[in-house]
Design a protein around this nucleic acid. Structure first.
Length: 422
DNA sequence: TCTGGGGTCCTAGGACCC
DNA sequence: TCTGGGGTCCTAGGACCC
């Protein structure tokens, strides 16, 4: 992670491209009748869950992302509620990426709907920043039929904050030297990394605007908020003060964790059903590990009770794994040890981390056995590709009948008609 | 208001080692 | 034998982002 800003003396030109109401806009492409209406993406009005995205029309009624769906329905009863379609969003995101790479070789998708471009030194090819941004904006609309907003600045931070100010469907360039003036009147909450809690702490100190923050002594912030406070002082001046923000645009960072979790439609204390769910989640995690060719050393169970109290319990293995059965075995042990059986459960999760890309050499027999199971699981993965996620599962229709792990069946794979080693 | 699912990063304490 | 200090690994929890 190089401190890119120290590599060259002259200021960088960073674009932050942020798609407008991305999920809603993609849904509108497949159902144009949604256009101009109050639309909420994320699930049905009476479901457990939160808003993934709301149309600008729905936002007028106070609906915003992360709001519970049921709350959104109260704020905006006439809204149309739509289930999300992650595959469609991924497809569109790839189109977006293609458009961006035509403008700069240094493109980094920061999430499914936003990206950073390092446009430093592209003036001869694309003209000055605003002209280049205008061209990009137009091309994006032509190629993807989607609107975006573009923020331009001398750091990732300035680009990010200015794209938010440019929304919807706008461009904003913060000329080098004008960073502090631009940030000063904005709420501290506009700084990426300042959330609800930090905002409250700052408000208690009488700090409401970024300008208030910039006037504070750096050491005072560090004293109060530690390492974070120090970075915050830099951010208030518009600098990419350390961490991810300071990294080169487009540098590939390997994933550090893989997880899957599930919230039940109704809280449950049905042990069989809970363990079947953990098995399904373990399989999903295992599959992703094999796809990435990662082996995880640390496995973590997440358990949320009816009253929302949440615990996590982790175990680190001597030998890393990417096998469903081994993952499930550890997770189930953690579950049995830590579940307070009276407590109805709302959510279960399986989390893998501490990756190593290869396993240390075991003895020959064990290596051969692991390879067999790996091959079997690859067959299962391909079947899922072709016939869908539910076609091959250890956990399907398992209420009261799922097979325990046995000596002959070390990965806990199901028997007849399913993937088997050899 | 009744709170998803996928991530990243940070802190703090305890175990263990030298 | 009445007590140091630093480093690393592990675990748990929490803030934050989209």
């Amino acid at each position: 992670m190089a401190a890119a800003s120290t590599i060259s003396a002259f200021p960088r030109t960073i674009f932050h491209v942020d798609m407008d109401a991305f999920f809603v806009s993609v849904e509108e492409l497949s159902d144009p009748s949604l256009k101009g209406k109050a639309v909420v993406v994320g699930g049905q009005r009476n479901e457990r869950g939160v808003v993934s995205a709301a149309s600008y029309e729905a936002r007028k009624f106070g609906v915003h992302s992360a709001m519970p769906l049921r709350t959104a329905a109260k704020h905006c009863p006439h809204a149309i509620f739509v289930d999300g379609h992650p595959e469609r969003y991924r497809e569109c995101s790839e189109k977006v990426y293609k458009v961006l790479t035509a403008f700069s070789p240094q493109v980094e998708m920061a999430s499914i709907d936003e990206a950073y471009l390092d446009m430093t030194g592209t003036a001869r090819l694309h003209g000055p920043p605003l002209k280049a941004a205008h061209k990009l904006h137009q091309r994006m609309k032509e190629e993807t039929l989607l609107n975006c907003s573009i923020g331009i600045g001398s750091s990732r931070l300035i680009a990010k904050v200015s794209s938010a100010q440019a929304k919807p469907n706008g461009l904003l360039w913060i000329v080098p030297g004008e960073e502090a003036k631009f940030l000063s009147p904005l709420d501290v909450r506009e700084i990426p990394g300042v959330g609800k809690v930090m905002e409250k702490h700052l408000h208690e100190l009488g700090i409401k605007k970024v300008g208030d923050l910039a006037r504070l002594e750096e050491c005072e912030l560090e004293e109060r908020f530690g390492k974070w406070g120090l970075a915050l002082a830099g951010k208030a001046r518009g600098e990419d003060a350390g961490g991810w923000f300071d990294s080169e645009v487009g540098a590939h960072e390997a994933a550090k964790s893989i997880s899957h979790e599930h919230t039940f439609n109704e809280d449950t204390a049905d042990a069989t059903y809970l363990e079947a769910t953990l098995m399904r989640l373990s399989e999903m995690v295992g599959r992703r590990l094999r796809e990435a060719n990662f082996h995880a050393r640390t496995l973590q169970l997440k358990l949320r009770y009816k009253d929302f109290t949440t615990i996590t319990r982790a175990h680190t293995l001597p030998v890393p794994t990417q096998l469903d059965g081994e993952i499930f075995e550890q997770i189930r042990a953690l579950f049995r040890k830590n579940w307070q059986r009276e407590g109805k459960i709302r959510l279960l999760g399986v989390h893998a981390s501490s990756f190593e890309d290869s396993v240390p050499q075991l003895n020959l027999l064990e290596t051969a056995q692991r390879q067999k199971w790996k091959n079997a699981l690859n067959v299962a993965d391909r079947l899922r590709d072709r016939f869908g996620e539910s076609s091959v599962t250890l956990a399907s229709g398992m209420r009261g009948q799922f097979r325990e792990r046995t000596h002959e069946n070390p990965a806990g794979l199901p028997g007849k008609g399913r993937a088997k080693p050899e």
